[in-house]
């Protein structure tokens, strides 16, 4: 098992997903077997091969610097679970 409980908890913390104690074991073993399976790639010789990040044939399109002055705050805030005085509100953060 390459993903032990601590690793699972560490990754879960990184991606902000709470893992309950009773889930850790099964999850760790599932993650381990998935990783074991994808490691099949190590059989492939990839020396001097450039990674392929995107298959689009497009060239990066450039936008003109035109500003949209429309106030979209109503739209942007319309789905917010909590909004106060036109701000999104979240539990207090202490820096």
């Amino acid at each position: 098992m390459k993903i032990d409980k601590n690793t699972t908890l560490k990754i879960a913390k990184l991606c902000r997903i709470k893992v309950r104690d009773e889930e850790i074991e099964e999850l760790s073993s599932q993650l381990s077997s998935i990783l074991d399976w994808v490691e099949k790639l190590n059989e492939v010789n990839t020396d001097n091969i450039e990674p392929l990040n995107n298959v689009s044939i497009a060239t990066l399109p450039l936008r003109k610097d035109k500003e949209n002055l429309q106030d979209q705050s109503k739209e942007v805030l319309s789905n917010a679970p909590e909004k106060l005085e036109n701000y999104f509100a979240v539990p207090k953060v202490v820096e």
Partner: peptide, 23 residues
Amino acid sequence: SNSKLFSSSSTKFGSSPNSQVSL
């Protein structure tokens, strides 16, 4: 610049909250 790096919202300083926010 007039607009943001990846959207056309205005970059003006000191506007009312969330008024220069695109989708």
